[in-house]
Amino acid sequence: MSKPLLEIKDLKVYFPIRSKNLFGGVTKYVKAVDGVSFHIEKGETLGLVGESGSGKTTVGRSILRAIEPTEGQVTYNLDGDAVDLAKLSDKEMRGFRKYMQLIFQDPYSSLNPRMTVRDIIAEPLVAQNLAKGDEVDERVREAAAYCKLNLEYLRRFPHAFSGGQRQRIGIARALISRPEFIVCDESVSALDVSIQAEILNLLMDLQAEFGFSYLFIAHDLSVVAHISKRVAVMYLGQFVELAPTKDLFLSPKHPYTEALMSAIPEVNPDIEMAPVHLEGEIPSPINPPSGCRFHTRCPYTQDICKTKIPEWKEINPGHFAACHFVDTLHLKGVEMPNSEDAN
């Protein structure tokens, strides 16, 4: 088996909180990401879900070194050579950035209103000196064509475009440097349903064409299920479960995953929602609960959960979960209705 494109080991990102006195000493840390390990294969999409504040965006950004990781390894396999991105200097990292790109959530604020579409798409090439002169224009036209943008548009400014078109400009910008790995951070969340479908199809087409690997971050579980091969569930800076998409949705092994699944509103008035009740709110990542971090809200909690940190175990091939009662709990996944009404 070939090596995975990316291997992340024990990634930690802590943000210091400075006290408000004169000296501004660091008093506490927000543990946004606290020990996360996973890998992404070449050409694979890994979905990442979790509530707001779970740290999913921070994971994506720290792999790209847009946020500095505090600890851990981010091993990138570039043609067989393993490079630990977390250890590269800023200058070395610069040379690496062309392999990794980010597609943002908000197509309105992620495009500079004073640049033409051509300049926006060309920026990665120019910034990294990857092409000069006519080649830049040629590659801009090529990227725009892949994203089904009318070449007439290249001279215009972003304000003239709708949300879906803007998002396609953002995607063209991401793929122009011919990356291998793309982080999609809520990239379709701000779009209307009919446009969202088109962008999801485009992302899947581009993957089939170029073999991109995606880290697909979103809070909409049906969207994640649709595009991902495997899905990871994050809670308070840690992974609680990671499994192939169907396994995760049909037979979740962690109570938090079960709760998430039960809260998806089903587009079928015959199926009544029965969401699992989670007590209270997501706790603060400054002082995460002891033991299993989910024990304060878990409906199945027992004494051991308060003291002992559950082990990250492989239950079935490729299906990982961190829960003390993985073997005894029978959790409910998504019900698959007969799809006869889905005309």
Binding site: S162, G164, Q165, D192, V193, S194, I195, Q196, A197, E198, L200, N201, M204, L221, S222, V223, A225, H226, I227, T245, K246, F249, I264, V267, V334, M336, P337, S339, A342
Partner: peptide
Amino acid sequence: ALLKAIPRLDHIGERLNAISGDI
């Protein structure tokens, strides 16, 4: 078209039917 455009859990991995064009 709107109903076909939403990703559904019972149709994982199938291509979505996008509505062509913009609003």
